[in-house]
């Protein structure tokens, strides 16, 4: 049986305005959790706050500006969130950027940005969140990584490298701090139909953000440290991780 969700959990959400983050934030709002939204644009945050209020009357306690490209914004955004929420119980990070490998190979500036946002700065944000959660005696940190980090693969050499580093960090964090009450959840979405993947050719097992959100919510409730979503990607990545290198060198996925 599922453990009953704690009512009105206090949630800080970086990335609730779009894609899988939007879907997950709606589920949290419908359940009665209270959110503080972090993001880059005040107007966009206000629009998402309105949407979440329509999904759950008490859903949004506030918003704060936070930009994954500007690590200087992290501490102040989390402090503001802690102020409006009273305390932090769940921190979700679903923001990030993506670009296809061919594009990144011709654009070192974009590559530097992507590596900074998806790896370095995401870790710096998580460190700030970790300190605050531990100081309160624990909580849950749920971060969106990717199946792209599971194996060195041709189409995601750079993006995958950032996500591999992120997944690695999240696993270590879970090992190190779970005993102190900090549960770290690493979400590994496969291909999901969102604005980020619009225009890309969808592989088999492509998923919808709402399905991903339901899986992630269940993992949050249960404290599962690792979630593949859609679920079929766990098996797919199991096979891909087992393939010998000479095969990976030949295939294009």
């Amino acid at each position: 049986m599922n453990p009953q969700p704690v009512a009105s959990r206090k949630v800080v959400f970086l990335g609730a305005t779009r894609g899988m983050g939007r879907a997950l934030a709606r589920l949290l709002a419908e359940r009665g959790e209270v959110l503080c939204l972090l993001g880059r644009h005040a107007e966009d945050l206000a629009r998402s706050a309105a949407d979440l209020q329509a999904h759950g009357a008490q859903a949004v306690a506030g918003t704060a500006l936070c930009d994954l490209e500007q690590p200087a914004t992290f501490a102040s955004a989390l402090d503001e969130a802690a102020r409006v929420l009273g305390r932090l119980e769940l921190v979700v990070v679903s923001a990030g950027i993506f670009a296809p490998q061919e594009v990144l190979e011709h654009d070192p500036a974009l590559t530097a940005r992507l590596l900074a946002v998806d790896f370095t700065n995401t870790l710096l944000f998580c460190e700030e969140a970790r300190k605050r959660l531990l100081a309160q005696g624990g909580g849950t940190l749920c971060v969106f990584s990717s199946v792209a980090g599971d194996r060195g693969r041709k189409p995601v050499a750079l993006y995958g490298a950032a996500k591999a580093g992120l997944s690695h960090y999240l696993e270590s964090l879970d090992h190190k701090y779970r005993a102190q009450g900090l549960r770290t959840i690493c979400v590994k979405p496969g291909f999901v139909h969102t604005g980020m993947t619009a225009g890309l050719k969808a592989p088999p097992f492509a998923g919808e953000p709402e399905d991903v959100a339901r899986r992630v919510l269940r993992a949050i409730d249960r404290g599962e440290p690792l979630v593949y979503a859609p679920g079929a990607w766990r098996a797919v990545m199991g096979v891909i991780r087992a393939l010998p290198r000479h095969v990976m060198r030949r295939v294009d996925f």
Partner: peptide, 9 residues
């Protein structure tokens, strides 16, 4: 379809 936010209700 991705622009699906409720702005007020």
């Amino acid at each position: 379809p991705l622009a699906d936010r409720i702005l007020s209700f």
